[in-house]
Simulated assay, not measured.
Amino acid sequence: MAAQDDAARIAAIYDDFGRRWAHGTSPLYEDWALGIAGDTDVVERLADLPRAKQQPNLVFASMRWEGCPLLPYIDIRAWLIEHWAGVVSTGATWSVQTNEANRCATWLPPLSRIEGPIALLEVGAAAGLCLFPDRYSVDYRTPAGVRRVHPPAGPSDVLLACTVDSETSVPARWPDVVWRRGIDLEPIDAADDGAIDWLANLVWPGPDHDARVARLRAAAAIAAADPPEIVRGDLLERVTDVAALAPAEATLVVFHSAVLLYLDAGQRRRFAELMAGLEAEIGRRVVWLSNETMGTLPEIDAQVPAGTATDHRFVQTWNERAIALAGQHGAVYETAPFAE
């Protein structure tokens, strides 16, 4: 019964990934996910792997790393069975670390509202590409037209793009970032070409994602030129001591995207409790910014109006108060659902 339950759980994960996340944005991954969801043999093979290695993003990236043709599932199923050992080996070596710099376009609106110096601490930082929101140019597509904003140093080699539902979301000022740190189980050196190749391989195939690879490599060059310190370790164990290193005169901003979904319910609750007590623990102002999916924390879900479309979107929160919906790869930013 346990094995059957595990197989059913995995099939449901792949079905949800295909129908809810890949649909409309990566037709190939939608096809692969739905194909595997209905493939008893492959689902049983996945059930033999550690749970962290069963996830679609990792399996699909491992398939591509091993040379899987970008063809419909019916055409690559035999390849997958034949190369299963290699796919499993690659998945055991690497992990999912979606380091999408375009998410900074959705971080800038709340960051721009914080006056004075800011210390950034990203949990789940990977190569730290999201630790440079003040180094990228952005095209904000507003109801009135496109507004391009450049960082204080001038136009950047990295141009982000984001559609917003309100002119007020376009930053009127840039955050004054004076300190940057990250925490990750497996930090990535932005100067390591092989590691950046893996990050590029994690980008989904499809026309909606083609620009992401070039943007990732350009952002990696910026990070490599001024590498932030990324501490190796578990976020639950390290967040307090790393936070305590931030300059006392700066507002510490702890932020993350699609990180808590990899924790179980108890771990998510523990992290939320750590964030709630962090300001008192380290004796300085703390802002907790979060981009996470529905279903991560029930108190956040309860703030999302019934009927709100949340596919391909995170719920963005400021100290556990929902303030916007943010596209999973930074392409949209919508405040209307939470307008007072």
Rank of each mutant, 00 (worst) to 15 (best):
98 T>N: 13
97 Q>S: 15
153 A>M: 00
102 N>T: 08
130 C>P: 11
94 W>C: 13
98 T>C: 07
99 N>Y: 15
117 P>M: 07
117 P>V: 00
82 E>R: 06
135 R>C: 12
108 L>P: 00
149 V>L: 06
134 D>S: 03
82 E>W: 02
120 L>H: 03
115 E>Q: 06
101 A>N: 11
94 W>G: 07
75 D>Q: 03
90 T>S: 11
84 W>A: 04
120 L>K: 03
123 V>A: 08
113 R>H: 12
147 R>P: 11
78 A>F: 01
81 I>M: 14
153 A>F: 00
81 I>C: 05
95 S>Q: 09
153 A>G: 00
140 Y>H: 03
85 A>R: 12
95 S>V: 09
89 S>N: 14
134 D>P: 01
79 W>V: 06
122 E>V: 04
94 W>F: 10
123 V>E: 10
138 V>N: 11
103 R>I: 05
80 L>A: 10
134 D>G: 00
131 L>G: 07
80 L>C: 09
74 I>S: 14
133 P>L: 07
125 A>P: 06
150 H>S: 05
106 T>V: 15
81 I>G: 08
92 A>Y: 13
94 W>M: 15
117 P>N: 04
147 R>E: 14
102 N>W: 02
76 I>L: 10
82 E>G: 08
152 P>L: 07
151 P>F: 00
131 L>H: 13
121 L>H: 10
100 E>C: 12
133 P>C: 12
108 L>R: 00
108 L>Y: 01
148 R>I: 01
134 D>R: 00
111 L>H: 03
102 N>Q: 07
124 G>T: 15
146 V>G: 05
89 S>K: 15
86 G>T: 13
92 A>R: 05
89 S>H: 13
126 A>K: 11
94 W>R: 13
120 L>G: 05
85 A>V: 12
90 T>K: 09
121 L>F: 11
81 I>L: 15
119 A>Q: 02
87 V>F: 14
142 T>C: 09
102 N>K: 00
120 L>V: 05
142 T>P: 11
101 A>H: 15
87 V>N: 08
101 A>Q: 13
118 I>M: 00
140 Y>K: 05
75 D>I: 01
105 A>D: 05
90 T>N: 12
93 T>N: 11
125 A>K: 02
111 L>A: 01
143 P>V: 14
112 S>K: 07
77 R>A: 04
83 H>Y: 12
84 W>G: 11
140 Y>T: 04
149 V>K: 01
79 W>N: 00
74 I>Y: 05
91 G>V: 04
119 A>L: 02
